[in-house]
Computed example of a mutant assay.
Amino acid sequence: MKLLYYCLAFALPALSASTDDDSKKAKTAHKPCTIKSPTSGAFFDLTPISVVLPEEGRKAHKDDRTESWHARGYDYPANFTINFCAPVVEDVKDVVGVDERLWRNVSAFYKMGGRTYSIGQQNSEPVFRGRKLILNYTDGSPCTSTSSHFTYSQRSTRPSLQPREIIGGDRGDKHRGHDDDDDDDEKKQKGQPGKNADVRRKSTIISLLCERDPLSPLATVAFVASSPDECTYFFEARTSAACGGIEAARQQLGPGGVFGVM
């Protein structure tokens, strides 16, 4: 009997220390593409819808996806290619206004007129906006200074904004100032810094919605709208990965381990 007490005296502190270490690791460790709801405590893991090509030498499974997700633009004159928490698996080249070393990090893009436009770089950290699960991509191609892409009927109702005359300047100064602004805009569109280096860039906001129908695809992505200045693109993605669940906890030393120590 005394031997059992002695064994427990040594085992319980070890179990307590192990549990404390595990809890600390659980608090500090964070798996990319996952998040826990601050209101419900539900755990969300988006990795099942993150498309990753199989490594070289590994045989692809029949269910492995070999292309990113697509969304039809409808009244927007382009379709979209998107991945979740990871860059698109397509070979993206000649991205407008984006440095070549960053082409491999593009997570959403569209093509128009033979040119590729990024609408966001890779981001593996979903966030909650209230009860809405959101994934946000930023630092895409420079936003256009004119409404050249949109064909929405609302565009025709916009008032034409003329350049304002510079107070205290003559006609020549006014035109020179306007031409300089045009030069800066042109440099921004090419991804080159003009006089103002603060280039506004395209971004993407994806709202993830729970889909519980077992017969539905793993994920469906729908284009919702874009901002009038063609800087922000809004999407909805329906997937079972956005339904939430319980995070699997790891336990290094369980009841069996206690008796093993004894």
Rank of each mutant, 00 (worst) to 15 (best):
R72E: 11
G73Y: 00
Y74T: 11
Y74S: 08
D75V: 12
N79G: 07
N79M: 05
T81Y: 03
A86H: 11
P87L: 01
P87V: 03
E90G: 10
E90Y: 08
V92H: 00
G97W: 01
G97F: 03
D99Y: 06
Y110W: 06
M112V: 02
I119A: 01
Q121T: 11
Q122E: 13
Q122H: 10
S124A: 12
E125S: 09
E125A: 09
P126G: 01
V127C: 00
R129T: 04
R129A: 03
K132E: 06
L133P: 04
L135E: 02
D139Y: 05
G140T: 01
G140Q: 01
G140D: 01
S141W: 01
S141I: 06
P142R: 07
S147M: 09
S147C: 05
F150L: 08
Y152S: 15
Q154S: 14
T157A: 08
P159H: 13
P159Q: 13
S160H: 15
Q162A: 13
G168D: 11
D173M: 13
H175G: 10
R176P: 14
H178P: 04
D181Y: 14
D182K: 15
D182Y: 15
D184S: 10
E186T: 15
K188C: 04
G191W: 02
Q192R: 15
A197Y: 04
D198H: 14
K202C: 09
K202E: 09
S203W: 00
T204V: 04
I205C: 02
S207L: 02
S207W: 03
L208G: 06
C210Q: 06
